[in-house]
Structures are given as C-alpha cells and as structure tokens.
Amino acid sequence: MKNWPWAILAPAFIFVLIGIFSPWLMTHDPAAQDYAALLEGPGWAHWLGTDYLGRDMFSRIIGGARTSLVAMVFVLVAALAIGVVIGSFAGYVGGKTELVLISVIDIALALPSLVIALALMGVFSGANFDWMSDYWKMIVALTMAWWANYARMSRAVVVAELQQPYIEAARVMGASHIWIFTRHILPHVLGLVVVYASADAGALVLAIATLSFLGLGVAPPTPEWGQMLVDGMSYIEENAALVIIPGLALTAVVVSFNLLGEAFALQKVPRAVRGRLLSRKKAARAAEEVARKVVEA
C-alpha cells in the first residue's frame, strides 16, 4: 500500500464524495431553466456557466456525478453477484450443468457488452416495460450485459481451487459442500473478482455515459455527463465549454478508476495476471491460464 499512487486516485475519491453529498453541493436546481441566462460563460452567478436552457452547469456536473455513481454501484454489485453465483455454481458442480452454463456464458460474450446493453435498451422500449423508469431500464440492461465476464472468471478460480489438496483434506474431515465453498473457495473468488471490478468501474462509468450520449440511457431532466456532452454538441460554436467540461469530468473519473485497478492488480493479483489487466477478455484468459497452471502442477 506504500507505493500506491494516492494523489492520482484523488478524482475517484472526489467523484464518490461528490456523488454522495451532491444535494448539499449544488448551488442551483440542476433542472431549473433560466431564460435570462442562456449559454452564459463562467461567472459569479453560475460558476461554470449555463447551457442552452439556462441550466446551471456546475450543479448539473455535480448532479451527473451522482447519477453515474448510483447506476455504477447498482450495476457492479448486481453483475458481480450474478456472475459469482452462476460462475461458482458451474465450476463447483461440474459435469453437464457446467457445460450448459459455460455455453450460456460464451453466448453472452459473443457480442461486446455495450452492444448487448444497447440492444436490451431497444427491447425495453416496448410497451410491456413501461413500469420501469428509463434509469432502471439502463441499470437492468447494463447488468444483463455485464455479468458474464464475472461468471467466467469465478468459474476459472473455483475450478483451480478445487484441485488444491486442502480442499480434499477438508472433505475428508467431513466438511459439507456449503462449508467448503463459503469458507475456502468463495474468498479466493471474491479476491480476484473484486480486484477486477475495481478496474471495471471505469469501463462502466464510460458505458453509462455512452448510452446516454447515444440517447438510449438516462432520460432528459436527470443530469448526466454523456447527455450533457451530446446536448452541448449543438452549441460548440457558441460555447465549447458545454462539451469540454462534462468530457473532462468523465475522463478524469475513468482515468482514476483505471489507475485504481492497475494499482490493485500490481499489489494483489498473481504474477501471471499482472500487467495483463489490459482488456477484459485478456484478464479472463489470464485467470484461466492461472487455473490451468495450477491444474497441471
């Protein structure tokens, strides 16, 4: 922990703090329109200026932090839980069940997660899903697109761990499956998966913003960075700050989360995985690689 790049992780911490305390930090109502102050530059009344409806940019950036943070936490926790349960179950039970579940995981990974999320947003636009707000549609779509990677990694870890002699020892001692799984295997699974999730948080913030940028995420009155950016695109000649400010906020947060993931990886993940936490697919493969090595040893 000594060599951690604490300073550079500041944006992630600030992002989380701002997200939590956003209602007390906003100087204006982020949805309030002020037609006397359209597209204004930074000033005393509006610290970061106003957008094309005269809404306060500073308050919208602060509000957008909360929108992203809440969605990200929901998706990450849900995807992780689903992935760990399905992946661990597949790995622990083995046999035909495992084969079926692996096939399902492979199918879910046959398209990039964001494309799946986009398609699901299309599916959810049907009348049968009107009971969900757009915000929840986005969270559900992203969760359904995101769990498969976690399932794949969890399974690899479980399979590797099951080969260890101490598992057999536990079994000989009469430990139940539940006991072996929760006491011995689950900690290993969570160890790797949580590390991966911390690196994944950045990708998720990006995905949320991309969905909104494409007009398929959070609905208009709610402040969201990707949406602020696309709104600002129509006014780049008058006030480019409308695009630059949310873009910079987004980039700072993603850089910070990616660094957090890298720092975690260098500290905790086995050497074989180290330095390979570059892409999700690669990371999953590396985990399997570790698993295979353990099996062969």
């Binding site: 990006l206 940028f213 950016l229 695109m233 780049i236 873009g247 980039t251 993603v254 990616n258």
Partner: peptide, 21 residues
C-alpha cells in the same frame, strides 16, 4: 493511459472543436 480512458465521443467532440470550429 489517458488514451484508454478518454470516452471516444469526447475524443470526437474535441477533434471537431479543435480542427473544425
């Protein structure tokens, strides 16, 4: 690191702002 963290729509927007506008 920055290249792998910048949203591509922001990259596109910045390129438009700088080179077009």
């Amino acid at each position: 690191l920055v290249g792998a963290s910048t949203p591509n729509f922001f990259v596109a927007a910045m390129l438009v702002i700088v080179f077009s506008v």
